[in-house]
């Protein structure tokens, strides 16, 4: 038997190289460094191993608790985003006159930076701003929306919902497009009302996507509110709108406590991980698998 030479197929390794090098060097290594430095008193120059001291400090810091509670409060935005996305998706799916235009328009917030959205919302809610002027008509004006903890949170949540419902709508629309329309016809013949069809067909069929959106938005609320908070309230008044990720930013980059910041960042990751697992466990994916 003639033994033919076996040439190694190098293509896959060469093709993976750019992604692998960048992800390894600029993500995996830094993650490792963060884990290591969460056990040091790193200030950017000097670092000394101090065991679990950072974590102890974190758990003894009263501000951390209020900051964590803030992040939990902002979770109210998640069901709001889901409802807004669902309403938008279901209504667009009705395909009334101009539905493509509406779909196009509902995407617009998704294209804008949180910075722009944040600045816009804070402008609207400024004393003497648009909202104030409208309220004055009803004799309610001169309310400092951003000067009061609860109303400041409301403004951030509104901005967040407005920014996020477009993406949610797309995900739901894409899930709805895979639902067999024969199901709706059958239900209509059975005399099911519009509500009934929504509740008994649409929502169960897209429950997997709803779960996906919920997971994504919870993660987002915990890790990515930085830009909104930065431009709308800068965390205030007091610490009332400071989220975990924003607080981590301040301690790390403004106060230069890198070891402490690293511990906070890791804690943030653990929280997100637990919330994700909890959601996946709490809402078993009931989405009916269609097709192949």
């Amino acid at each position: 038997m003639v033994k033919s030479r076996r040439r190694k197929n190098v293509f896959p390794y060469v093709a993976l190289l750019p992604a692998a090098v960048l992800v390894l060097g600029l993500m995996v290594l830094p993650i490792g460094a963060t884990i290591w430095h969460s056990f040091t008193n790193w200030d950017g120059v000097n670092s000394k191993f101090i065991g679990f001291k950072n974590f102890e400090l974190i758990f003894h810091n009263p501000i951390i608790y209020s900051v964590f509670v803030n992040s939990l409060i902002f979770l109210i935005s998640v069901p709001l985003i889901l409802v807004a996305s669902l309403i938008a998706a279901v209504l667009v799916y009705e395909k009334v006159l101009g539905w493509r235009v509406f779909r196009f328009l509902f995407f617009i917030p998704m294209v804008l930076s949180p910075v722009i959205i944040g600045v816009l919302f804070s402008t609207f809610f400024l004393p003497g701003g648009a909202v104030d002027q409208v309220l004055r008509v009803f004799g309610l004006g001169n309310f400092s929306w951003l000067g009061n903890p609860w109303s400041a949170r409301v403004v951030v949540i509104l901005a967040l919902v407005w920014a996020s419902f477009g993406f949610g709508m797309v995900v739901l629309l894409s899930a709805m497009s895979t639902v067999d329309t024969a199901l709706y016809d059958a239900a209509a013949i059975d005399g099911a009302s519009w509500w009934r069809r929504l509740r008994s067909i649409t929502i169960p069929m897209i429950s997997g996507s709803l779960q996906f959106l919920s997971v994504i938005n919870v993660i987002y609320t915990f890790t990515s509110l930085f830009a909104f908070v930065y431009v709308i309230t800068a965390g205030g008044p007091g610490f009332s709108t400071t989220t975990v990720d924003y607080y981590t930013y301040i301690t790390t980059f403004e106060n230069g406590q890198f070891g402490y910041g690293a511990a906070l960042a890791l804690l943030l990751f653990l929280i997100v991980l637990m919330l994700t697992i909890a959601q996946v466990k709490l809402f078993p994916n009931r989405e009916v698998q269609q097709g192949s």
Partner: peptide
Amino acid sequence: VPIKMGNVLFWTMLMIMFMPGIVVLLPLY
């Protein structure tokens, strides 16, 4: 392309995707 460990690599990448940005950015900064 059928390669060994392809799935492991992919899932590793996915895990990394869910890391909060600050975990990565802190030492890079």
